[in-house]
Design a protein around this nucleic acid. Structure first.
Lengths: 233, 233
DNA sequence: ACTCTTATTATGTCTATACATAATACTAAT
DNA sequence: ATTAGTATTATGTATAGACATAATAAGAGT
């Protein structure tokens, strides 16, 4: 056993990664414990711990107390994706951002929505439909509900001047949320708003947010055809 | 200043989160440095450091040496997605997984692909088209290229019996990759394979993987209509 | 004014040590 | 034999102290 000096947790991460990919430690195998690795790498256990912890967070290792650390058999790789602000997304490409409010109503939400989102049935909520433009061309269409029981101030805001999402992040922060992505065919109205043909495939993001237990807002965003969401492994 | 004893980095994370959401520390604001917070919370600096580091990794804080830590103005929230194995996905729902190889050819890839993926032009590669079934119903259709310059063994494998992805994770691990999600209208052939109508919206995943600089495989997966990719914030 | 050097500051990381905790194995009492 | 208690083990986390590093500010020299 060669005692190489690898002091940084980054070094150890890449060395362990190397051993996994070269199958020095094949899938399913139990690897030496932190103390042994610390001796081998010539560093402290805390350093080994951080390296292994991060690798387990990205889905390559599985750790259990007393049982030890093993290489995951079928690694379910974890990718982090940035849920960007639409305005930033557009401006990052050097385009001009535009925003148009299409509809606004203080009405009772459909029962299905109330159920899945956890708001009391029979209460009015703010319903907004809006369009995000990139250089005056439709970029995304959003259909949003805001819980005015919890954020009554939202009723006084002029959402034809203020982007709802941006107002909400400033005025009604959330503690956790829930996002789903899918593909749907644009219906008659949606295709008109997005200025595409009917039945064109659009990328959809459904997001619900809460502050502790209280629902804040739920939004469905339809992106114009060609939209791609990108990340690395 | 009340000196509360918050010893765990989890406690500190939620306390800091609380201060951000309640705007005790409003967006853009510089928060006290680690040393001060350690005193306030009655813990060590390392503990505060871990809490703040994790919050900055999830996009809520921005940290710079010497400059300090500040609350991000327009938080670009980061969500982690699990890129699951299709078989697991299907079996997790209690369905039976099935796999059918549709086409196999050792041919030269289109020039566009060679360019974007970084393989030498004019070299043959393995091209596979396959179908993933859930209870014998089409679930996803994949179109894959394998770099046989780097993995010549792939030419000898019977991919009508072995799922290509599963063979590759076992036999040709990658160090990094690149994933994009989008929505497209199924063309004539795709809709036939997936047993849906032409132009139906399908959710698409494009993935490229490398081992260091060497391309391993690139695959486009089309999921049957209704597919949703889910995560939490 | 301008550049170069030096000091300062907050975060980034490492170490050694300690104790907590989950999972398991062993042991003694009934 | 079953159960309750105890020991063991590897990871999980906390602590105090140290030094590294990036970013900035202050000062010196031209």
């Amino acid at each position: 056993m060669t005692l190489v000096k690898l002091n940084s947790f980054q070094d150890i991460k890449s060395e362990v990664l190397e051993r996994i990919t070269t199958r020095t430690w094949p899938p399913g195998e139990l690897i030496p414990n932190e103390e042994l690795l610390a001796v081998e790498f010539g560093c402290s256990r805390a350093t080994v711990n951080r390296a292994l912890r991060e690798l387990s967070e990205s889905g390559l290792l599985e750790r259990k107390r007393k049982a030890g650390t093993r290489v995951v058999l079928n690694p379910v790789r974890k990718a982090t994706l940035s849920i960007s602000i639409i305005r930033d997304d557009i401006e990052k490409r050097g385009c001009t951002y535009g925003y148009v409010l299409l509809e606004r109503a203080h009405i009772m939400p459909p029962l299905v929505l109330a159920k899945t989102w956890g708001v009391a049935a029979g209460r009015k909520m703010l319903h907004l439909k809006a369009l995000h433009l990139s250089n005056s061309v439709p970029y995304a269409y959003e259909d949003r509900w805001i819980n005015t029981e919890h954020i009554p101030r939202a009723l006084e805001v002029d959402f034809s001047a203020h982007n709802a999402n941006e107002w909400l992040v400033q005025n009604a922060p959330f503690t956790h949320g829930d996002i789903a992505f899918s593909a749907v065919n644009a219906d008659a109205r949606e295709s008109e708003y997005l200025d595409v043909r009917e039945r064109d495939a659009v990328f959809v993001m459904d997001r619900k947010t809460w502050h502790d237990q209280t629902p804040i807002t739920t939004v469905r965003v339809l992106f114009a055809p060609g939209h791609r969401m990108h990340t690395t492994l």
